[in-house]
């Protein structure tokens, strides 16, 4: 929190679905090369926070990226700046092949084949399984593979910051660990990540900092090193 120049900074960010206010004046920030976890129970507004940053919902407040204000109702413009969301439920395009999904990830890529190959190589290095499954219909893959594809597809966009919405959802513990390990690798390479998770212990293992969200408000900023036990975490949840 000492760093005065965060890469992403949300101030008074609120969001509503019709008459329901799902996010109430949230302040949060992400620093360079930081992995920030957003924790909280079901319905706390975690997904809404990511959607609000992307401009996918009706919002109030401001979001600054690298010191510049982001447009609030233009998701395409937000994505163009390298803020890439891996949506809840992965949002992969089921009827299309793995290759086509990856191509869609690099949708904004104006450059030539070389840059595309470079990005694809990076994805394959991280997820060798995707290379084997390149021609497979995405919808026919296992949940873990689909999550890999979702992250791989996001990487094809060459993100400057990655927003992940519950990547562990519906995955077996072993697969979950594997995916989180990949996120750690990406983060160590310098990619800032916002990780929304319901399974707090997993996220806290990776995160440098964590926000705890409840009923649309940030109720605590947590230093993972200070959280020693489940009980302690539970206290935050029910406080």
């Amino acid at each position: 929190m000492a760093n005065p120049e965060p890469i992403l900074k949300a101030t008074g960010l609120s969001a509503r679905y019709g008459h329901v206010e799902a996010l109430k004046s949230v302040d949060m920030h992400v620093e360079e090369a930081e992995l920030v976890a957003v924790l909280g129970p079901n319905g706390a507004g975690k997904s809404t926070l990511l959607r609000a940053i992307m401009g996918l919902v009706e919002t109030g407040g401001t979001v600054h990226f690298r010191g510049k204000a982001l447009p609030r109702h233009d998701t395409v413009a937000v994505a163009s700046q390298g803020i890439i969301l891996v949506p809840e439920g992965r949002g992969i395009f089921g009827p299309m092949s793995v290759a086509e999904n990856l191509q869609l990830g690099a949708y904004r890529l104006q450059g030539g084949k070389g840059e595309y190959e470079r990005r694809q190589a990076r994805v394959f290095e991280l997820f060798p399984r995707l290379k084997e499954r390149l021609s497979q219909v995405a919808g026919s893959m296992s949940g873990g593979e689909q999550q890999m594809l979702a992250i791989g597809r996001a990487l094809m966009a060459d993100p400057k910051i990655l927003l992940l919405d519950e990547p562990s959802l519906g995955l077996a513990p072993r697969v979950m660990t594997e995916i989180l390990e990949k996120l750690r690798v990406l983060n160590e390479q310098g990619l800032p990540i916002v990780l929304v998770e319901q399974k707090a212990p997993l996220a806290l293992k990776l995160a440098r900092r964590a926000y705890l969200l409840s009923l649309g408000r940030i109720v605590a900023a947590i230093d993972p090193r200070e959280v020693q036990s489940h009980d302690e975490l539970a206290r935050y949840y029910f406080a």
């Binding site: 959607r51 992307m54 996918l56 998701t75 395409v76 994505a79 163009s80 890439i84 969301l85 949506p87 949002g91 992969i92 395009f93 089921g94 009827p95 299309m96 086509e100 869609l104 990830g105 949708y107 904004r108 597809r153 996001a154 966009a157």
Partner: peptide, 15 residues
């Protein structure tokens, strides 16, 4: 096809 699959996911990729 991206629009068909999920408008939000497509938007989030810059479509």
């Amino acid at each position: 096809f991206a629009v068909a699959g999920s408008e939000d996911a497509a938007r989030a990729l810059g479509v």
